[in-house]
Amino acid sequence: MTDIATTQPVPSTERSAFLRASYWLLRHPPVFTLILIVLVCLVVGSINPDFWQVSNLFDILRASVVRGLFALGVLVVLASGGLDVSFTAIAALVMYSVTMLATNWMPGMPIAVILALATFGGAALGAMNGILVDRLRAPSLIVTIGTQYVIRGFLLTFVGTALFMNIPGSMEAFGKLALIRYVEPNGAISTLPAFVLVLAVAAAVTWWMLERTLIGRAIYAVGGSPSVAERLGFSLRTVHVFVFAYAGLLAGIAGIMHVASNRLANPFDLAGTELDVIAAVILGGARITGGSGSVGGTLLGVVLITLVNNVLILVGIPTTLQLAIIGGFIVLAGAAFSIRRRP
């Protein structure tokens, strides 16, 4: 967290083309991820032509929404030099309590109100994380491991453990709303759900916030070097609370998307997917020590992880190997990008 962003290696003109190419790659980590995506697609597609189907593309996009929303939140936290592992617990608590509230007291609650409640609830829980990280002055990983257990324990002890099979009508309708309806040559219909637009909007807002606003500058500055940022007049507390609240807000929305697309609210869902999401953000080129990372790279990372989770089965790689492969990706990406820090 206290690492100072060091200067990038500057290739001299005498160096070989290979070295220059690899330096260029290291300075543009998302390209590395893009190459991996293309490779996975080509290999899987050549082994199993079923891969090249519109329905498969739609499936990957649909599966990317919840992970993508989480990843944007993690990106913002990482850029500020922190780490959050409590977002899945926030999403589970928000989605379950909002669904419960709507089902028991106001079955006709419109989707706008549901989303507003989830946004507010998620942001409040996230802000709590931020205040704790700021006040306890402990590594944010340790603090959010604590809040993750508090939130999940609270949900399962005091809120409930039973599934909601019949979710409110407005949520169900929202999940079924189709953006594109495509009829395959064999007559099967595949649809691209409209809620992928939520991810698009969230990505655009996050990009705008990080690149075009003062708080975005403050986030990167604090991530690069907290002490320098503080001397420049940025308030560490504001940045801490803001980034965790933002991550919580996105997690709240992601929870609702999860319920809408699965058409049930299960309080045990989403637990354990944190590492996938963090892997996606790291693969997208964000450094764990803060001060870097981009929305485009993060989305590429999300697509790569979703590909690994969804299509390896198409080429006969057993699903039991997925964890090991994603773990290997984290280590490789971490090792490749850590070279950037060397003088």
């Binding site: 590492l275 892997a279 090991a324 773990g327 984290i330 280590v331 090792a335 850590s338």
Partner: peptide, 23 residues
């Protein structure tokens, strides 16, 4: 030697070790 942050290194190997045990 590879210079990874301990969090990332052990997060990755946590998944990696678990993954091998699952497989």
């Amino acid at each position: 030697h590879a210079g990874l942050t301990p969090i990332i290194a052990t997060l990755g190997t946590q998944l990696f070790f678990t993954g091998i045990a699952v497989a």
